[in-house]
Design a protein around this nucleic acid. Structure first.
Ligand code: FES
Ligand code: FES
Lengths: 140, 140
DNA sequence: TATATACCCGACTAAAATAGTCAAGTTTTA
DNA sequence: TAAAACTTGACTATTTTAGTCGGGTATATA
């Protein structure tokens, strides 16, 4: 059960922005240098964040990205959803071929996986970006 | 964030056993037919379950597998661990090259992922196989 | 107004993980 | 002794992941 690097880097980069933004745009170059994430990869990630209205961009010299919401308002869940990282531990859709073994009724474990998804989702729903910043051993 | 099919099938197969075992061994062939899981794949899965002492085997005609513990005692977590399905959402080990960006200090998000892992683990720890059997819409 | 900086965007790819299959056994009971 | 059922390691096609690449566009400032 792993989270992909895109989601992880997205959370990392946004946390970085929350720390370093003082009402000014933060460039991906700076984030890349501070957090050791490939600039090209960050661009890909921030395109999605922008499309999903997590950040807004400022082009040109001294440009960069800014958070749309405050860290206190920004749910981690919203970040993950922006990266297509749905919490769906089992790829089961009723009525589709992807349903468990292609049968029409739900299998014996179905409800359990639903419960699991809800359990994980509620974690991401309850946590805000600001919750990460309290960390005492932060590295800049 | 997906769970692999091996873990899913393992839980499914063990739930099937819990339903159909009346102190007798349940053959993989029967589980395969009832649950629609490939017999060859089940064999692979049950080898691991056996090695991890989740089930015991009875060879020969009328053989099969039996649960070592009762469904009420068997934690879902134990099943997942048997399939190498560790709940480790981020592949970060301190002091290894796999640590976040190879630096020596923990990154800003590290503690958050730790919390996440604990949150998910505690779910699997608290749930027993018997918790799945209450399902009313079971398919046999 | 030139130019450097920084965002924008689709396409591409190497490597790893996944989801199985296959072959060739061994053991036990009817 | 034959059939049922477990045992084991190796193999493979497909999918996913984790990026890179190339060629843009917009804008501040010198
Ligand atoms: S039918 Fe949904 S998980 Fe099996
Ligand atoms: S240092 Fe552990 S997740 Fe970054």
């Amino acid at each position: 059960m792993k989270l992909n690097t895109k989601s992880r880097y997205a959370v990392m980069a946004l946390a970085d922005m929350a720390v370093f933004s003082r009402n000014n745009a933060v460039s991906l170059r700076d984030i890349s240098l501070r957090q050791g994430i490939s600039l090209l990869y960050l661009e890909q990630i921030f395109l999605k964040l922008k499309k999903n209205n997590i950040v807004k961009s400022v082009r040109g010299i001294n440009g960069g990205y800014m958070l749309v919401k405050t860290p206190k308002e920004l749910k981690i869940l919203d970040i993950l959803l922006a990266l297509d990282q749905k919490v769906k531990t089992i790829g089961c859709k009723k009525d589709s071929k992807k349903s468990c073994n292609g049968k029409s009724t739900k299998c014996i474990t179905h409800n359990f996986w639903d419960e699991l998804d809800i359990h994980i989702n509620s974690f991401f729903e309850s946590k805000k970006l600001s919750d990460l910043l309290r960390n005492k051993e932060v590295r800049y």
